[in-house]
Design a binder for these strands. Structure first.
Length: 474
RNA sequence: GGAGAGGUGGCCGAGUGGUUGAAGGCAACGGUCUUGAAAACCGUCGUGCCCGCAAGGGUACCGCAGGUUCGAAUCCUGUCCUCUCCGCCA
């Protein structure tokens, strides 16, 4: 979520930023937000002022009714006068009357004490009703405002190049040699089944399209990759987490998946639990509603989880192979930082992701996203891609984002800046390290041999009993 | 799944329907004292929202949501969660 103060201060600037994001539908919400924000503050003032008067008068009423040491005529006089003042809306005067600061000119009245007090009570009740009305209006406007705020994307960092299409993304010089073959390298959807380690039919039989079964070396290789990543991340100072694979709805809002990406997640409707589309959702909310100490920042976390995505939006794309499934394994790196350090942390996070590819001897390159390709919650984003020789494409294996306070504001993760009296939102960063199936693709395709076997990267061998190659199926 | 107990500030723990944002204690922070430290003593010590340049003022929050009442941490209803015992289970 954005800071509403920013929108209040310069809505036109915010709108220009959103135009750069190529998110036309969000644009209209800015004007709506400005309008609702004004309405909200006006209503809040009315409500709170009324409540302040009410609090005072109720207290005074209690004492008056107790009537300790007061002449009955005074009580009646005060009650009658106060009732009139309340009904004319002059609450300050009513308060001075009730508290006896105007006993000098109390009206004469022949109503009984009980009647006088009951009349005043009626007037106070009417104030209460008016307060309820105002409070309901505030709640209503609040809800509308919230809804609009939740649909606004994060704004790009000033260093991000303005561009509308992913074709304008900045591509860094690739590292590593693209492998060369003296035969035609197979794509993994042919190679995997040929090796007997990847079974598409079995996946379809069990769960339908976009599911697959890994077996033997395939399953082992995946497990090895996960262990290898986690060990690497631990060496870089990340604390390993094991988290629930399903979470409450609020967590999806906290991580800025909802409301916009509701259609990508799976739901257990009975239990009202949602399956993680990424571990990022769980980790973002790890410190939800907490106020952290600046001395504890930055916090680095890493977690391996399966990720479940309905992929309705991507129907028809990447239907071959294991590049885009409904269920896949991912190791996610995550950082909670101060605003001052978050961009330096983004660089090191991206480097950490690239390091994984380097250690696996995969050709790797970094992309810097232009504004139009940033997505919903990133203020700045790097993608990491590795080359896959069989399908002849650069596969996105990591996406490293600084969301600044966008998620932190939703999940209410704050900290006390050193020596400050006010809390501040932390900045959060996330980066895959790395999407397992796609790395699997690259390893298989790049390391395939003429005889149909596949060489295992040296870095993975310790995790596979020292074996050097996946043998061809005889 | 059955039975019971309970949810109050960073933690522990009081709280009769009206000077309670909430006693007391611990922790933390600042200070006095001390060669230094400890102890002792004094002080500070929640968050959101609204107004304000600020100082400050107002308001809300005692799991959550409703209700009763002129007025609710306190009474009522619902709900969620935690704990204990039993059953079942990897």
């Amino acid at each position: 979520m954005l800071d509403i103060a920013l929108i209040r201060k310069d809505p036109e600037w915010v709108k220009q930023q959103i135009r750069n994001l190529n998110d036309e539908v969000a644009l209209a919400r800015v004007d709506e937000i400005v309008r609702l924000d004004e309405q909200r503050r006006d209503l809040i003032q009315q409500r709170d002022n009324l409540q302040a008067s009410r609090n005072k008068l109720n207290k005074g009423f209690g004492r008056l009714r107790g009537g300790k040491g007061l002449d009955e005529a005074v009580i009646i006089g005060r009650a009658v006068a106060a009732k009139e003042a309340v009904e004319s809306g002059d609450y300050d005067r009513a308060d001075t009357i009730v508290t006896g600061q105007q006993d000098g000119d109390l009206p004469q009245s022949d109503v009984s004490k009980d009647d006088a007090l009951n009349n005043l009570m009626d007037a106070l009740r009417a104030m209460g009703n008016r307060h309820s009305e105002l409070d309901n209006k505030v709640k209503d406007v609040d809800a509308q405002l919230e809804e609009n705020m939740l649909w606004l994307p994060n704004l790009p960092h000033e260093s991000v190049k303005v561009g509308m299409s992913d074709e304008e993304n900045i591509i860094y010089t690739p590292e590593g040699e693209l492998p060369e073959f003296d035969f035609e390298p197979l794509p993994h959807w042919d190679l995997g089944p040929q090796l007997g380690i990847l079974d598409f039919e079995a996946g379809v039989k069990l769960a339908g399209s976009r599911f697959y079964v890994l077996q033997g070396w395939g399953a082992r290789l995946q497990r090895a990759l996960i262990s290898f990543y986690l060990d690497m991340a631990r060496e870089k100072g990340f604390t390993e987490l094991y988290v629930p694979y399903m979470v409450k709805e609020d967590m999806l809002y906290g991580a800025a998946q909802f409301p916009k990406f509701r259609d990508v997640v799976y739901l257990d409707a009975d239990a009202e639990l949602y399956f993680l589309p990424t571990a990022e959702v769980a980790i973002t909310n790890l410190h939800r509603d907490e106020i952290l100490n600046e001395a504890d920042l930055p916090l680095y976390y890493v977690a391996h989880t399966p990720c479940f995505r309905r992929e309705r939006a991507a129907a028809g794309r990447d239907t071959r192979g294991i590049k885009r499934g409904h269920q896949f394994e991912k190791v996610e790196m995550y950082k909670f930082t101060t605003p001052e350090t978050s961009y330096a942390e983004l660089e090191s996070l991206t480097e950490a992701a690239m390091d994984v590819a380097r250690r696996l001897e995969l050709p790797v390159r970094r992309l810097e996203q232009v504004t139009g390709d940033l997505g919903f919650s990133a203020a700045k984003k790097y993608d990491v891609e590795v080359w896959a020789a069989g399908c002849q494409e650069w596969l996105e294996v990591s996406s490293c984002s600084n969301t600044e306070a966008f998620q932190a504001r939703r999940a209410k993760v704050r900290y006390y800046p050193e020596g400050e009296k006010k809390t501040q939102f932390v900045h959060t960063l996330n980066g895959s390290g790395l999407a397992v199936p796609r790395v699997l693709i690259a390893i298989l395709e790049n390391n395939q041999q003429a005889d149909g076997s596949v060489i295992i990267p040296k870095a993975l061998r310790p995790y596979l009993g020292g074996e050097e190659r996946i043998p061809a199926q005889s």
